[in-house]
Amino acid sequence: MLRRTLNLERPDDVYNAVVDAHKGLDDEQCRAFDARLILLLVNHIGDEAVIREALKEAAA
């Protein structure tokens, strides 16, 4: 089951780390960065059902 509630101890720190990682990247670089990031996190999550649910929610 895809977690819907907050799972971060320091949400503002993590959010800004993710956003700031895109600073200075052009559109194409952003897409490439996000693709690598998503694949890393997807593998870390591992649970295919969760990944498929997230894919569905992100498309909604």
Partner: peptide
């Protein structure tokens, strides 16, 4: 709207 975690962000 649907995800409480996002509200916290």
């Amino acid at each position: 709207k649907d995800f409480p975690f996002a509200r916290a962000l």
